[in-house]
Computed example of a mutant assay.
Amino acid sequence: MIAIDKLTDVFVAVADTLVADFDIIEFLELVAQKAATISAATAAGIVLGDPTGRLQFVAASEESVRLLEVMAVQSESGPCQDCFHAGEPVINPDLREGEARRRWPAFADLATSMGYQSVHALPLRHHGTAIGALTLLSVGPHPLEDADTKVVQAIADIATIGILQERSLRASSVLTEQLQFALVSRISIEQAKGILSRIHATSIDEAFTILRSYARRSGLGLSAVATDVVTHPERHPSITRTSAARGDR
């Protein structure tokens, strides 16, 4: 069972993010991290549907999940795909067993090669329709009981609330606009990660840490900083230039 103190920590952290200067990708990254923590999963990822109805990766707690979700998007096969299209949770598949390998052979092969054994996917829902999916992955057996599934589904619903924060939900065009903004922001962040990785000669994970830490220290939105790194790097010399280029001693 999920501990009450862990659940309290999640809602406090999410509430703090929602009332602060809101950045959709940073918020969804936080939701992915907290979903993994509260469910005791190894990692979590979030995908959203684009205006054409195809899923796109937007956030993850670990870089390995990004690779898995991108592969699932490209192959149009995986638990997140089934969850999104059916609008129903996919709970307790063992990636080593025949059923999972028959349903998602490429996903199961890649996931197990990364050390993952079990997977769950829960829909991000709006008015009964899935707009995305939250995926949980674990390196060992990780069954979710009914009560725990309800709690994790509540976390997925919080992600939907964040996406649609302070917007009218009556017009479908508003929902499409919000989803498209999240997807475009994710592209900028991936580009910025690559740029910072080259500048600092470090891993993609560490480049993302540099980007996120700088945005938080500066009181700026993660997406805004990422866009500047790609298009106007001179605005943030402390992360877009090496120490030598800055003249640091």
Rank of each mutant, 00 (worst) to 15 (best):
N92H: 00
L28C: 03
I2P: 12
R246P: 07
A121S: 15
S61I: 06
H120F: 00
V19T: 14
A130W: 02
V58F: 06
E62C: 08
G49Y: 07
V10E: 01
V58H: 07
F22R: 01
R216N: 06
G87W: 05
V119Q: 01
K34Q: 14
T160P: 09
S168K: 04
E177R: 15
T42N: 12
P237E: 01
D23K: 02
P79N: 09
L48T: 09
V139C: 12
A86R: 03
S197V: 00
L183W: 06
P233A: 11
V47M: 09
A15D: 12
A245P: 00
G53M: 10
D9P: 01
A147N: 12
I2L: 15
Y214W: 12
I38W: 08
A36V: 03
T8R: 08
I163M: 15
G45F: 03
W104I: 07
S138N: 15
I195T: 06
T149C: 14
I2Q: 02
R198W: 05
G115N: 08
M114N: 04
S138F: 00
V90K: 00
A171G: 12
C83V: 07
A40N: 15
L67E: 11
L136S: 02
D94C: 08
A86H: 07
A130E: 03
Q191C: 05
A59R: 00
G140L: 05
D5I: 08
I187R: 13
E63C: 03
D205K: 11
G98H: 10
W104V: 07
L95R: 04
I131G: 01
E29K: 12
A154I: 02
E26F: 01
I46W: 02
D50R: 10
A245G: 01
D228K: 11
E190W: 04
G53W: 11
D50N: 15
V229K: 07
R235N: 14
T209Q: 13
L68Q: 00
M1Q: 13
D205C: 03
A13K: 09
H236T: 12
G162C: 12
V184R: 14
G140V: 09
I195Q: 10
R96Y: 09
R170K: 13
F208E: 14
L67D: 11
Y214V: 04
S218K: 14
I25R: 05
A121Y: 10
Q180D: 07
A36N: 01
A13H: 04
Q81C: 08
V230D: 02
I46A: 09
V229C: 08
G49H: 07
R54P: 01
G45I: 03
A111P: 05
G87E: 05
L30S: 10
R217T: 08
L136M: 06
